[in-house]
Design a binder for these strands. Sequence first.
DNA 1: CCTACCGATCGGTAGG
DNA 2: CCTACCGATCGGTAGG
Lengths: 211, 211
Amino acid sequence: MNRNKRAPSEVHNDQRTAILAKSEALFAGRGFPSTSMNDVAEASGLSKATIYHYFSDKEELLQTIAETHVSRLLAVVKLVEREDYPPDERLRQLILGFMREYETAHDAHRVLTEDVRFLESGARAAILAKERKVVAAFANALAAIRPELRSAKLDKPLTMFLFGMINWMFTWVDAKGPLSYEDMAELVTDLFFGGFSQVHHGRQPGKENPK
Amino acid sequence: MNRNKRAPSEVHNDQRTAILAKSEALFAGRGFPSTSMNDVAEASGLSKATIYHYFSDKEELLQTIAETHVSRLLAVVKLVEREDYPPDERLRQLILGFMREYETAHDAHRVLTEDVRFLESGARAAILAKERKVVAAFANALAAIRPELRSAKLDKPLTMFLFGMINWMFTWVDAKGPLSYEDMAELVTDLFFGGFSQVHHGRQPGKENPK
DNA sequence: CCTACCGATCGGTAGG
DNA sequence: CCTACCGATCGGTAGG
């Protein structure tokens, strides 16, 4: 019934979503600068002019992909924070939530971490502001578990090491490998929890070797 | 004395080294695909034709930079292995050696981790083979400390998490920040040593939830 | 939603 | 005849 009479906005939306999905895969695979708008058009089965009907330029594709993904990461953070877990469980849930997001949005995550630097400064700043909120949420959970780390100003660096472990995964994780993302989440969690509890908390940045 | 009579090969070598240094900085800053040979020529203060006198094409620049750097990393590995440290000290020294290399070869390291994927498959394979040797050296040191990790096939994943912490640093470390690279090396070492000793060693990949 | 294009710039090479 | 280069421009393709 009404098979030939979908609302135009619905078609419009499908088309737009398809273009974004194809762009995401292309950017993740060969990088933003090496992907041409002809590549995007061909992969989408549309003319280049049609792509430009939905997006004003190549950067807008990148910006939309990055913005959508970082907003989803922020949503994961807010979902966890609403649960009122004790601090250590909050950090565990943040890690688990990110690993799950990573699994379902592998390409978008890669675009976010590798290609955002090609945005002009205004658009880039907006993305980076949201990324900073995400980092702050993790650092807060860590500081709630071990407040000495914050007074020693080690909460941010340690959080960045955690993000390094997670964000670097796309370079080596084999989806068909023996380790599932749940396994990975458990490994990262054990590694990080075991690790930060060993960091000397008497230490202060730059005051290692008092002369 | 003899100020006007340098050996031609010496001039040649200086010129070549200068081109590589400029390319390295440009590739690290804006990425390989976004750097033009005109950029390289301009930064080097030479004509593009002169660049092509030293290097047959753009890829050869990238290949030389990556090859030189990964060979230097392998040299660090071999230097440490020659010392016959006990296993835990060997891993400590590997981490410290890499952090020092990272400090002095920041740009080259970034090019190695981000741009090698743009090499054609033959040249890329040669680099990746050396990278695999580096990873194996770290994994071996780890397995020598805790052999159960190897039998549980967790030595490689844990090693890759360590590389994640190190390789991700270029995205957030501020050279003028309070933490020196020596501080960073100590932090990463504490974090990793504290962490892997907490990983459940009874675990086997993919056998988490036996049905 | 397409064909037909543009100004500019790409990687690479000519003659001298 | 060689090396170490230069100014100018090639055939194609980029984003738009």
